[in-house]
Design a protein around this nucleic acid. Structure first.
Ligand SMILES: [Zn+2]
Ligand SMILES: [Zn+2]
Ligand SMILES: [Zn+2]
Ligand SMILES: [Zn+2]
Lengths: 126, 126
DNA sequence: GCAAGTATGAGAATCATTCCCGATAACCGG
DNA sequence: CCGGTTATCGGGAATGATTCTCATACTTGC
């Protein structure tokens, strides 16, 4: 149905350079003057995630963070633990690996989670 | 120092066939007659995790689940979404993949998360 | 504009996890 | 074995993210 709030949230997410939590996005929307409720942010973020339009993952502390990715296709992330810079990685090699492993053990309908974190060249003050 | 509680918790975890949450382990310990506090279960689980003696991962709902694995070496898991059966997978291929990807983008000190879930042959009522 | 059906927002309710702090138990030199 | 010292416990309060509830504010089709 209507999409005023939805658009605002979707746009705000679009503008984020890194993964953000629902709380962060909520704070930014409020600062930007949007009169939006926290529940609504959660609702739309979930909807977008289910629709496959945003990627979700969890920080080590268990907080869910969201990001609108450049491509709608399946991919993984390489994230800088310091600045949050994120590189989207679409590489069939890891997909094949997951399928092979599952196959070897007789598992069906496999789904995988693969994330890589490190320190990017800009942050690595080696 | 004291190790009564620590042992009990460690042993209880050992006895689990699948990943369990702190809450579940707490419940089992109480049922087994152990007079233990929830905070203590969390404390030791974290300690064990930091010591690398147990693996931790998060369910889709964000709950942390723990498991004492057969090997102390780095490995990944193939988990049945239905019965929880877990296969420990130690395969250098995915390690190499992660390192290569990180390298290609100039990331250092990389760490990765790789989990695979599916339906095992016993549960797959195809 | 109107009725019917959503979406929304404020605040309460949940729930895992963490904090706090007095009580308890392990250690240790004597 | 004893008292003093110190690390660990347990229980209940505190936290913080996420979800629920429900009265109210939009949308949409007419
Ligand atoms: Zn960086
Ligand atoms: Zn993949
Ligand atoms: Zn199974
Ligand atoms: Zn690995």
């Amino acid at each position: 149905m209507s999409t005023h709030r939805r658009q605002a949230i979707s746009a705000a997410l679009q503008a984020q350079p890194t993964f953000v939590s629902a709380q962060q996005l909520y704070a930014e929307l409020r600062n930007a003057g949007e009169r939006v409720g926290l529940a609504t942010v959660y609702r739309h973020l979930q909807a977008l995630a289910e629709a496959g339009q945003v990627d979700v993952l969890r920080t080590d502390e268990g907080e869910a963070v969201y990001r609108r990715c450049a491509t709608g296709r399946h991919h993984h992330h390489l994230v800088c633990r310091s600045c949050g810079r994120t590189v989207e990685v679409a590489d069939r090699a890891v997909e094949r690996w997951a399928d092979r492993i599952a196959d070897e053990h007789g598992f069906r309908d496999v789904r995988h989670t693969v994330e890589v974190v490190g320190t990017c060249s800009a942050c690595g003050a080696s």
